[in-house]
Design a protein around this nucleic acid. Sequence first.
DNA 1: TCTGGGGTCCTAGGACCC
DNA 2: TCTGGGGTCCTAGGACCC
Length: 419
Amino acid sequence: MYALIDCNNFFVSCERLFEPGLEGVPVGVLSNNDGCVIARSEELKALGITMGMPVHQIPSGQRRRIVLRSSNYALYGDLSSRVQQVLAARVPALEPYSIDECFLDLRGIGGDLDVLGRSLVQAVEREVGLPVSLGIAPTRTLAKLANRRAKGMPGHSQFCLWPDAQAPELSRYLHQLPLKAVWGIGSRLALKLASLGIDNAAALRETPEALLRMRFSVVVARTARELRGTPCLEAHELATPRRSILCSRSFGRLINDRQQLSDALRHHCQRAGEKLRRDDMLASAIGVFLRTNPHHTGPQQSHSLWTMLPFPSADTLRLNHHAQRLLADLWRPGIAYQKLGVMLADLSPRHGSQASLFEGHEPARQEALMLAWDAIRQRYGRDSLTLGLRYDNATWPMNSRYRSPCYTTRWDELPQVST
DNA sequence: TCTGGGGTCCTAGGACCC
DNA sequence: TCTGGGGTCCTAGGACCC
């Protein structure tokens, strides 16, 4: 048996935890750049504000009645790890899945699952203060659905236990469940499946595996099998070490200027190098992508280029050097670009990686330079040392007008208390 | 005017080999 | 005129997730 526990309206709940006045109020949390709504309170959902809705599409009448917050990932990340600590103290096998979700492997756990499930929900609420939902079922895919079912439960019992995949109650639930609600079936696949007459979760799990394998992919076939109650996903498939790093940002307006694109790329390379060194890893391949605005009509372009580094590296200067050459090959005159990013792949641990006889390695001087670089920024702040001009001098500063204080990670942002 | 960012996995098709 | 078959590897792009 597996469980899925997740925090209800996680980002909104985090904001409310430190600002209780937001209880009962329609609250939304915005994406980077304050572009669109990525988390909603129940009150905001009731107003018809949809997931991913651009802020500028919210009618101004509604806009005045709701509260918006910029995303504050330092706060959410910290609360997320507190939730995990509470769970880890009670269940042996934890599989964190996202910032607000965690699978629990309950195989081999004796005792009453109903009692265990309810006690976990209560423990998180009591010790962290965040409301959570919990679903338990024979597979992870079904546990996700049990969790969804739990959220619909009346009152405070956000818990659902489905011990048997073939139980009539579960079958009834799957019959009325749109395909899109199933983990692994997105809107595109749902459309294609519907064209074959498969338009709910029960229909999917009754479809012969060979047909799904032939017309779709192993992923869809596996999902159907999970719906029938046979576990197909291994833990290591969920929690593998990071395989790639991506740093990207929309510009907020369209850009073709080579220099401005180059500036943005330099900034992204700097962040990517930092992530890499924080994880103590090296990258062997680097890629750059450049794309137009997919929301606009007219011709679209979205291309990426990759190159191998001469040897595995975590050197910001080297990453930037190769990325800039890729950008030069990607860039075309007269095209209005909306987004640019750098990607690192073929990651390996910095220590313990076997040095090849023929392959070079980063000179010790460069490694020392990057260590000093990180140390200076750590000590004197991120703005104390940057590659080239500071990025916020550029034309597209990132918007985060409504960010709350980092209550749990920054002393200087704690509200003043008068004595 | 303004539409996120960061990941994973799979597949089709091209390049290449014998 | 007639121009193989079978395999591997790599990459770009698509689909999914939160």
